[in-house]
Amino acid sequence: MGEITTSLVLAGELVATGDARLASIVTLSLQVSLTATLLACLIGMPLGALLAVGRFPGRHTLIVLFNGLMGLPPVVVGLLVYLLLSRAGPLGQFGLLFTPAAMIIAQTILIVPIVAALARQVIEDAWREYREQLRSLGASRLRAAMTLLWDGRFSLTTAGLAGFGRAIAEVGAVMIVGGNIDGVTRVMTTTIALETSKGDLPLALALGLILIAVVLAVNTAAFMLRQWAEKRWG
């Protein structure tokens, strides 16, 4: 109990004093995870829509696959991306290992299945409602998928947020492909892991509390935006 109070006080102090190192770590965390979320949405949402609307062989297999990949272990993704980006790997020549770009790639791979699977669910429900109307108007399946993506944009924020939540909270993948380099690839979660291994548990927990606060802030902003938008558009 005493330790948790210490952490709360410490978290408050770190935020109140505007600790510059903390600020840069939080900024990098947000930069990496928000970019990964954006990329995952750009890839995963159209994919989810096609899985919902499309009719092609192997569709059910793909749906099950993406549902399963939602539980992809971050360490495995990290290792995979490490082997790809390592100098000895197929993409080694780009020198991306131990950069924020590598972390973005790993987190994107990690959360594309989450975004795609949740988007598929949202779009499939909408498709059931819209299907006849869109077909009657002469929309192709591809066109219908695009229309449903745009029309479901408020519900789809949930898919994006789920992906973001997973991205910013994971440590296994960014630790391996980022290397936790001070000032370059050190993010919230890797800092927490580092402080834990230094035995500074109050500081680690304080950082954890700040991470939770950041995630809550992003979710609150998204929630309010969605509320406003739904009130506006129905």
């Binding site: 834990t196 291994s197 230094k198 035995g199 548990l201």
Partner: peptide, 29 residues
Amino acid sequence: GMGSALNTAASMNAYLLADRGTWLAFKNR
């Protein structure tokens, strides 16, 4: 890693071999 091993030893009250530097910087003894 060294830090995790030290945390484990601290919670189990176990012996372990550590480098002096990490030990001196380690807070959860």
